[in-house]
């Protein structure tokens, strides 16, 4: 269901992308960043979606950063591929969480687009549209 991609992500076609799954509502980008393809992660107040019990259910940006810290990530300064580390990039608009992408071993990025497909893309590909800009980078040492 990759409809209207050009208007939602103006740079995606020009920078290139590869569709890597079928559309599904089973999981979102947060789950996908943590390699979970079974749950929708979100800090909703009704508790319909997954969020760690020990973390505050809040839509403030710090809550999403805390979630990834909870899963072993720490903030870093850039998106450069580093051997031995997994990296994620959090896209924001006006300091509001909009999306998260995970870096692959070849330096490209993988994202779950809302209720649609997974794609492999460049970090710039999703810039400037629905998700805003990648403003926070985090990394985690890959366990041997």
């Amino acid at each position: 269901m990759l409809t209207d991609l050009n208007s939602k992500f103006p740079q995606l076609v020009a920078t290139g992308y590869l569709r890597t799954s079928c559309p599904t509502i089973d999981y979102n980008c947060i789950a996908w960043a943590m390699s979970d393809n079974k749950h929708w992660w979100e800090p909703d107040q009704d508790g319909l979606f997954v969020w760690p019990d020990t973390l505050q259910r809040s839509y403030a940006l710090f809550a999403f950063v805390n979630l990834f810290k909870h899963h072993g990530y720490q903030k870093c300064s850039n998106d450069v591929l580093e051997a031995g580390y997994d990296k994620i990039a959090i896209y924001t608009i006006s300091r509001q969480f909009k999306h998260v992408a995970r870096q692959l071993a070849d330096g490209k990025w993988t994202s779950k687009l809302g209720c649609c497909d997974d794609i492999t893309h460049t970090l710039d590909g999703l810039k400037g549209g629905t998700y805003g800009l990648p403003t926070i980078f985090m990394k985690k040492a890959i366990s041997p």
Binding site: N28, F49, K98
Partner: peptide, 12 residues
């Protein structure tokens, strides 16, 4: 459905 297909959060 068209407008929100790509949004990452149910809240949005």
């Amino acid at each position: 459905r068209i407008e929100t297909a790509y949004t990452s959060l149910a809240r949005d």
